[in-house]
Design a protein around this nucleic acid. Sequence first.
DNA 1: TAGAAGCCGAACCGTACGGTACGGTACGGA
DNA 2: TCCGTACCGTACCGTACGGTTCGGCTTCTA
Lengths: 213, 213
Amino acid sequence: MLSPSPSEPQTPSPRRQAVLGAVLALMVEEGDQLTMDAVARRASCSKETLYKWFGDRDGLLTATVQWQAAQVRADRYDGQALDVASLRESLEAFAATWLSVIASETSVALNRIAIGHAAARKSNLGGIVLSNGRFAIGERLKPVLEAGRAAGLLAFEDSEEAFRTFFGLVGRDIQIRLLLGDALGLDEAAIAGEAERAVAQFLALHGRAPSNP
Amino acid sequence: MLSPSPSEPQTPSPRRQAVLGAVLALMVEEGDQLTMDAVARRASCSKETLYKWFGDRDGLLTATVQWQAAQVRADRYDGQALDVASLRESLEAFAATWLSVIASETSVALNRIAIGHAAARKSNLGGIVLSNGRFAIGERLKPVLEAGRAAGLLAFEDSEEAFRTFFGLVGRDIQIRLLLGDALGLDEAAIAGEAERAVAQFLALHGRAPSNP
DNA sequence: TAGAAGCCGAACCGTACGGTACGGTACGGA
DNA sequence: TCCGTACCGTACCGTACGGTTCGGCTTCTA
């Protein structure tokens, strides 16, 4: 693990959010070589303001990543999955949400930038993305899995390990292909299909339903 | 899919290989912000030569990626897996090799750079890495899977889909974590363990051995 | 109505880096 | 012995970009 989830800076002012939104849009369009000039132009603000508000380029990027990460983890699945149907439903919803996140242009752009920074050992965008992505979702899913186990519907020893398997079954080669620029068109229906398949496989491995005594 | 496997340029001269090796080393150390100056210094050659040989910075990077990719796909598993034990063994060897590749510093550095280029929509490093990594390994593994199916040991409809599941079970969250700078220390033993676990899960899903009628 | 604060836009500075030019050396062939 | 080729090392050029400065406009407060 890289960084313990970073201290949440309270939501920025609307004006700042507009700036961060501009950064995000530019990230999607231009990748990491977005310039401070471009940001200022896009956000109709002066570079001076950017530097006053965010310190330097890295600060701006970090703020953007944190802000966007906060957007994502909105919904919450309280995991009282009592029967296998509702458990399956929860898991599928989880998988579908997660897939549509990692398939979104924003997520791809963000991850690319964070990876670039990890390469340069600059700042800690990688850690931020990781703790708001992979680890955050793990912490959200584990209670569901544990509830499933408590209800006798799932069998596993380590919920972290079970989650990693779930992660692999859902994501497969999708994220790396998107990051590398492969344009696999994942529409809503495809995502639903993937989610269903992944959950079926996960239940085949860890399920304990009547059909899997 | 991005690019049909690129036309293989025959192995470069030893001198050029030395240069490419220097680039590779610098990629690992510095990430994408390796400079032409640094390469020239490291390889004890003049920048003029670099430009004469490789055209421009992009050409140098591309040549390096292609060269390194050629190194990787050396071994070959001819998949006459007759019994379940040898099939399992083949799959485990496959998984372990693949894991040690994606966990290597070189692979991480290369993927990071290719991802950066995909972000900038420059050149096609992403396509090259993809077709020499993810797709190349797919083409190598599928015959094994199909042999297993022919021998009645595996059950699946689409070998591409089966491979993707295998890929997910093996890689799980490892590659993305490494790319983002998470330092999960994967030693030989851990890799072997991961490979064994992944294959066991894969066989649980697609196996047809006596234990899984 | 004067001042202060916050911000925009534009000009500016320094530097890093891609790419080029050039002098100097080693070597192989006539 | 002389020339051509290939290369190294270094100096150089142009530009892009991070960061700073400054003049002027608006808004708020007294």
